[in-house]
Nucleic acid binder design. Structure first.
Lengths: 213, 213, 213, 213
DNA sequence: GATGAATGAGATTTCATTCAT
DNA sequence: AATGAATGAAATCTCATTCAT
């Protein structure tokens, strides 16, 4: 039993601090967050933070990395999975991305921090692109290509900008970041409609000739 | 007529300061911006700022308002215009929105500031919604409704979330805020493809029966 | 009369601060000196110091330079003067050096700071050598050489280490720095005896008559 | 016999710590030295230092005492020795003092610390005077007196300030503390010339009448 | 004996804000 | 109108010291 409480505490400290840091940084932004408040949230004193992290900047970076990692892992895992048809996979993939980009408060707020502090922490942006956005876009392009080859996806220049498929999730993200307090959104419904829009577009399906000659 | 230059100078001061404030706030964020740097950019000293603005907070608010106003006015004006068919108007309206949301650096960076400081300046968010996003969405809904009535727009639940039509512009905005330094994007092309996607969707148009029963 | 008190104040501030800094740094050493105490000594607040000096390090450097300058100027001036014979000039030159190295508390304490912080402020050591010690030693060598040529100074290898003539002043300096509180020293007498020792040495003069009538 | 290494280790710890403390204190001065660095130099952690020493102040005091003791003992021993003539003894005594004051880096740096921290650790200064400088000066006075009585040393007021004989060593010490990095000094030669100067002075020996009427 | 997590006081530094000129 | 010296509160960061293990 020796070393129980102490040791357990120690092992958990960094995580606790990162968690608290996340909340404070999200609430106030990087510059306006006081390490003292982060410490207080954990129930320790300022000094303790410096025992685990070099300085405020490093704490921020570590926090973003820590909270991003599980998401990146999940995304990797999901991308590796497969489904029968392209539209089917697309639907489940987009659902997954919706969840981690727009629905999950964590992912949402991390994105806020990245947008806000992009110029101060370019390395984080790079990592985010390398570990998440890049692979996601590549996977989307692949699905579109394959689906197109199989005739499941129409011939379209969307293949040039597969990230357009993320647009509904990203715009919902912004909407939530800006207006969530004001007017609640039915995110499930938003997703359903977005998928419908992406798959079928706005123009009536009945006409045999397209309207853009 | 002596003092003409002076007088002109004086009249321009507030605008110069707001301009400088915009650049500094964008570069560093609200909290990390030093009024001294704003002043230096104008070529005056800190004290002068306090002659024209109550404090840092008010300067920020005034700056966002000042830079948003012309955009809001343009948007209002554009919304009042008309075109023959719904798809036609949609195309030109979206083009306009693309420009002020994603292509124009001003609009882009203002959105960054709103996202970053949403919790500190809720009033600005309200104004933004009231003067821009709200009217835009209302106009979009109206176009969709009218188009649908005329058979130009297919019957679709997109009418529930007209803001989905903004998704491409908003996501391009985020993309630019995050990755513009890294990877240049052909924004014209992005727009064309987005319109195509919105109008026609991903599924093949040719078959008479849709593939989503 | 406009701007009187204010302007006068402003012009004097840097000097006041340097003066106060000198006293605090001497009393506590570089690291243990608190800028708040320096400020309090002047009657201003911490912030004011940062209006005039970049940081603690620069304040220290500026202080040492400021207090050294007059001494260096005097030394230069004195070195330029002349006397009839070498021993005569030597006596008056050494008297002068005694004063600024060992007798004057300012010079004494500056040397303490240089010794204490040599490794942290190598530039100051360089300046001290370049502006003071170097020229002094060169002048001493010249006097010895000339005196030797004229037969006023005996042929001796002291010419190799003219700085040895500074030894009494420097050792008195150390003595004062270490033991001044404990045991008062008659510095006039110390000087007289040192000159006698340097000129005549310890060994009896070989000539038949005794050497100090 | 298990634990032999351990036991030896343990017995050596305090000495190791003092040694490490010496190096750190010399490098950074008292205030700027971090106990953590001292500990790291030994290969232990901060806590261990507190097992052997009460606090930072006591560590400093113990360190100075520890490193001074062997010097004081040697000095005592040497002072007890004798030589045929006064000038002979003087030469060897001064040589010894040169070594421990100016040539040996240890003695040199200890003096730097004493000069730097004189006001914070008056007790150390007292001890230094009582155990070293005082006895040395007394012995010098005695040699001068005896030599003078025997006619080996000329009648001179140097008897009033026998510490003047230490001046060359002390000034070399300062020179090394300040300028050693910059310009190397031939310390052997310095000593030889200093002895010559002390014994024979600067004035030509041949002239029968002194030059100071 | 030794560790190292934790503390908390204190130091440097920054900067929005004021106000006499 | 504008300046810029001065303030003072607050934030980051450091580190001697303690103590449970």
């Amino acid at each position: 039993m020796a070393g129980g409480v102490r040791a357990r505490r120690k092992a958990e400290r960094p995580g606790e601090i990162l968690e608290a840091a996340f909340e404070e940084f999200v609430q106030n932004g990087y510059a306006a967050t006081r390490l003292e408040d982060v410490a207080a949230r954990v129930g320790v004193t300022k000094g303790t933070i410096y025992f685990y992290f070099e300085n405020k900047e490093q704490l921020f970076v570590a926090m973003v990395r820590e909270l991003s990692r599980p998401v990146h892992l999940q995304a990797e895992e999901f991308a590796a999975s497969n489904s029968s048809t392209a539209p089917e996979f697309l639907r489940s993939y987009l659902c997954f991305l919706y969840r981690i980009i727009a629905t999950d408060p964590r992912g949402r707020e991390i994105l806020r921090l990245l947008i806000a502090e992009a110029s101060r922490f370019p390395a984080l942006i790079d990592e985010h692109h390398q570990n998440f956005m890049g692979p996601v876009v590549r996977r989307l392009r692949q699905v579109l290509d394959d689906g197109n080859a199989k005739g499941e996806i129409r011939q379209s220049s969307v293949l040039e900008f597969p990230e357009l498929l993320l647009a509904p999730a990203l715009s919902l993200n912004i909407w939530m970041l800006l207006f969530s307090d004001r007017r609640p959104i039915d995110m499930e419904r938003h997703f359903e409609i977005a998928v419908d829009l992406l798959l079928n577009g706005l123009l009536p399906r009945t006409t045999s000739e397209s309207n853009k000659p």
